[in-house]
């Protein structure tokens, strides 16, 4: 009780509405947001429980279903083999997919670099920057697959539509990433070169790009990894060829799970190699060389 007394004397005006309240004290403030949040969670929980009771299970035996799923996974990942394609052929298709990836990333990043400069508010006018950013937001809002299908109308389903479509989305993605990297640049550096009489292009190539190089490269490489995924997907979805098409044929036509497993492993291996390269690159770029 002594503590309470000292508290009361220290603050002169004891807050009797809180300390003398009989109700249990709460350490969390109840706000409108927390009420809405809890109500939503409760609602979702009730709906989920209700759904599980009312699903149409047909005659599926849950245990049987689980065991056959694991059986299939076992076939895919533990017994991989090649039957309809040779190793040689598969590797070649892998190169085709990597080719799609390199092409889309390369073209996309070069175009994005230039538009990124004009989209950065510290290097461009407000009008140009806003226009580019609005267009780019629209390009990014439409998924890559949809862009490929849109371009397929003009170019026909195949690798051309895939390259154009993936490149298009890459440009949108990288312009945003690049321009934001440029905007983070210390404005003093630009001021210093401007003050010595350098012009815009000189400042861009001598100060802006060297300063942002590590960001630019790591963004481009991240997009490279994303484009690798899309290149596989487009092989199946848009007939662009490559390892994705083989995967689609093995799974959808030959129903050969073992072959699907083999191709999956190859793709996984490439993805791992890409990851290792990007990690090393980041260390090298950010550290002292």
């Amino acid at each position: 009780m002594q503590m309470e007394e000292t508290l009361n004397t220290a603050w002169e005006e004891p807050s009797n509405d809180i300390s003398n309240d009989e109700r249990p004290m709460s350490i969390r403030k109840i706000s409108k947001a927390s009420i809405v949040m809890n109500a939503t969670l409760l609602f979702l929980a009730i709906v989920s429980i209700y759904a599980f009771f009312t699903f149409d299970y047909k005659n599926v035996n849950l245990i049987e279903a689980f065991s056959s799923t694991f059986y299939n996974l076992k076939i895919v990942f533990l017994e991989p083999h090649l039957k309809h394609f040779s190793v040689h052929e598969t590797i070649w298709q892998l190169i085709v997919t990597l080719g799609l990836t390199v092409l889309t990333t390369l073209i996309g990043s070069v175009i994005a670099l230039f538009f990124g400069l004009f989209a950065a508010q510290n290097l461009s006018t407000k009008l140009a920057s806003n226009i580019i950013k609005a267009v780019v937001a629209f390009i990014r809002a439409v998924p890559t697959v949809l862009w490929v299908l849109i371009f397929a109308v003009a170019a026909g389903l195949g690798s051309v539509a895939a390259v154009i479509g993936i490149t298009f989305h890459t440009i949108g993605y990288l312009i945003k990433a690049f321009s934001e990297s440029f905007e983070e640049l210390d404005k003093g550096v630009i001021e210093a070169l401007k003050g010595s009489g350098a012009n815009w292009w000189q400042i861009v190539f001598q100060a802006v790009i060297p300063s942002c190089a590590s960001y630019l490269i790591s963004w481009t490489f991240l997009r490279f990894e994303i484009n690798f995924t899309y290149a596989i997907l487009m092989g199946a979805a848009a007939g662009a060829g490559g390892i994705g098409f083989d995967l689609y044929m093995a799974g959808g036509h030959y129903f050969d799970l073992r072959e699907v497993g083999f191709i999956t492993y190859i793709i996984l291996a490439v993805a791992l190699v890409l990851e290792v390269i990007s990690t090393r690159m980041k260390v090298k770029l950010s550290g002292f060389d």
Partner: peptide, 29 residues
């Protein structure tokens, strides 16, 4: 705050002072 391009070498930063005397192409490269 010096306003140097941190990622470039000392000599490159010093030579930046010459950019104003150069044409765009020479400056860029």
């Amino acid at each position: 705050h010096y306003n140097l391009v941190d990622r470039l070498s000392v000599i490159e930063n010093i030579l930046h002072g010459r950019l104003g005397y150069k044409n765009t192409f020479e400056g860029i490269f």
